[in-house]
Computed example of a mutant assay.
Amino acid sequence: MPVMDGWEACRKIRAKDNTPIIMLTAKGETYDKVLGLELGADDYIVKPFDAKEVTARIKAVLRRTAAKEDTNKGVYDFDNLHLDMNRYELKVKGKVVEAPPKELELLACLAGHPNRVYTRDQLLDEVWGFEYYGDSRTIDVHVKRLREKLEGASEQWNLKTVWGVGYKFEVKE
């Protein structure tokens, strides 16, 4: 690598995110392997290597990272807000807040797509399903109740009404 070595590249990638890293290198000493793995590499392959083995190792790393992502699916974390849809649990400022399932599903829909505006009809379809025949104003009632539970939790986000359109989970950047 012309600009930085593999160790530095691994450090920089790990500092920013959890992208899978497989080191392909000529350095085969035990010290080098241990250092690479301790710096955050998911696998370490020494030259010469077989292409089929590399392919199998790539698939294994991707399986492991996909499994980690699945456990975090449905979990939303924002400043003073933790919503875990796997457990149907809402925590505001670290304390569990009781809320009915539809309120949690509505919040998950909005928080899952920050700053995206949803119409009432879109929210009804996403949360209640296509077969719901009630009044679209039920969304207003649920948003009002959620606001009461989330009031004053953070200046970084809020449930915002977009007049004439619908609602969004607004996150300030």
Rank of each mutant, 00 (worst) to 15 (best):
A153V: 08
G94Y: 11
S154M: 04
A153L: 05
Y132W: 10
R116G: 03
M85G: 00
K93C: 07
L90F: 02
H113Y: 10
S154C: 04
N86C: 00
L104Q: 01
E148G: 10
L110D: 06
E131C: 08
V97I: 13
S154A: 09
D84V: 06
E155Q: 11
P114L: 06
D125P: 00
T119S: 15
K91Y: 07
E126F: 07
I139L: 04
R87Q: 14
S154K: 03
Y132K: 05
I139V: 15
V141Q: 13
Y88G: 00
E103Q: 15
T138P: 00
E126T: 06
F130L: 14
R87I: 02
N115V: 08
E103P: 01
L123V: 07
A111I: 04
L124D: 03
R145H: 13
N115L: 04
K144H: 14
R116E: 13
E126L: 05
K95M: 11
G129S: 00
N86E: 00
D121W: 09
A108M: 03
L107C: 01
H113T: 14
T119L: 05
C109E: 12
E155F: 04
A111T: 05
K91S: 08
S136M: 09
R137T: 15
H142I: 04
E98W: 08
H113E: 15
V127H: 01
L123S: 07
H113F: 11
Y118C: 08
Y118W: 15
G129K: 00
E155A: 12
D125R: 14
Y118A: 07
L106W: 02
R145K: 15
V141A: 13
V117C: 10
G152V: 04
V141W: 11
D84T: 06
E105T: 05
K93N: 11
M85L: 12
W128D: 09
D140T: 09
E151Y: 10
R87L: 14
K93M: 09
R120K: 15
E105Y: 09
G129N: 00
R87E: 13
K93G: 03
N115C: 06
I139S: 02
D84C: 06
I139C: 07
D84I: 06
V96D: 08
N86M: 00
Q122D: 10
G134C: 06
T138H: 12
G134M: 05
D125Y: 10
E126R: 11
A108W: 02
V96P: 01
R116C: 03
E98D: 14
S154H: 03
D135E: 10
P101I: 09
R145S: 12
Q122G: 07
G134N: 06
L124M: 14
D84L: 04
L90A: 02
R137H: 14
V96A: 11
E89G: 02
E105C: 07
V141Y: 14
A153H: 08
L106T: 08
W128E: 12
V143R: 08
I139K: 02
L123T: 05
P114Y: 05
W128A: 12
D140S: 10
T119N: 06
V97F: 01
G94A: 09
A111Q: 03
T138C: 13
V97C: 01
L146V: 04
S154D: 03
K91W: 03
R145Y: 10
R147P: 03
H113W: 08
R137D: 15
S154W: 03
C109V: 09
G152A: 05
V141T: 15
R147F: 06
T138R: 13
N115Y: 07
R120Y: 10
L146F: 07
Y133A: 15
E151V: 08
V97E: 06
G94I: 09
